[in-house]
Design a protein around this nucleic acid. Structure first.
Lengths: 173, 173
DNA sequence: GTTGACATGTAACAAGTTACATGATTGA
DNA sequence: TCAATCATGTAACTTGTTACATGTCAAC
């Protein structure tokens, strides 16, 4: 049911259309939860049918902006405060890291460098977000956590890439 | 298809039964991928039918120990080296962190403390694993990464819990 | 003898992906 | 007018969860 609450949470922060939610799942929620538009639209319809969300504006090109109803806010608060978190994860990159020792040093080095490039790019995006943050923005700590986590990850990946090189990964490049 | 490769990867590290794999998904792979036995047994059957895994031993209580075939090793290597990683994630705890500002200071503080307890417990488990690691164990760097990531996370959670307390979370305990 | 861990499986359902399908609006 | 982006939806399929179902073996 996390998709449902991720949507309720995004709508609580800012009323949005399905299209806008889809982009938010690809940007701000990228590192937390993934969803396609084909999953979002039916869920919005269900939320509306159950009275947790409502259409608050119909705009151009048939767009429908949804906002939370009172019971939507209640359901979200209840989930955040009372429901025990499900700690299970699905993270393919982590599976790959777990299995890197099965690769030859050269392939392993390349895999670490590929991940490093991804983390660097993500860090650049986070820095951009941080610089554009309004001074009263309550979202700053989450950005800070992302930057700190990325710093640790990228240092580790660099160490591992170097170790793989020493083991016979025939040097950088 | 990550489940398939997670299983192939675990079998490459060590031939195992479905029951043993189920426990590994709950322990060593806990922070990367989650799977129940009801998903693992049918997947093992498929892997065998496709010639990627084979039963190498039948033990007590009907247990079947699977190992990789040559083409199983090839499929795994191909995935690790050639297939572009899927970076999308499903992490409910991250969704919750993203939404913490929607809670009142008191509830927020309790949520951070709940997460802190979980991270502390997980850190203790990792330290235990680290101490029991054989000196030649190639898995040590992954444990180290877990410890470093947890250190960053727990420092951040503590800062956030303190901030929530200052905002009106009526003090620890 | 009965509890608990070991061990494997299936069926019904829910969640998520991929592909298909359609149409509006903007800017070059 | 053409391409890109905005905007919503559905259908077929795959993946994952929950619940049901069965049997073995060891220790108490």
């Amino acid at each position: 049911m996390s998709l449902r609450y991720a949507i309720l949470g995004l709508l609580a922060r800012q009323p949005s259309s399905g299209y806008e939610l889809t982009r938010k799942f690809d940007s701000s929620l990228r590192t937390a939860w993934h969803a396609q538009h084909s999953q979002i639209y039916p869920e919005l319809a269900k939320l509306e049918a159950e009275g947790l969300a409502e259409i608050i504006k119909r705009g151009a090109r048939g767009s429908k902006t949804y906002g939370l109803t009172e019971s939507g806010h209640d359901a979200l608060r209840h989930w955040l405060v009372e429901v025990a978190p499900d700690r299970s994860q699905r993270n393919e990159s982590a599976v790959r890291l777990f299995l890197t020792q099965l690769m030859a040093p050269r392939e392993r080095r390349l895999a670490f460098e590929r991940d490093l490039a991804y983390v660097h790019q993500q860090t650049a995006e986070l820095r951009l977000i941080k610089d554009q943050l309004a001074p009263d923005e309550p979202f700053a700590p989450q950005v800070e956590l992302g930057l700190r986590t990325n710093a640790v990850l990228s240092a580790w990946l660099q160490e591992q890439a170097d170790a793989a090189t020493r083991e016979g990964g025939d040097g950088p490049q």
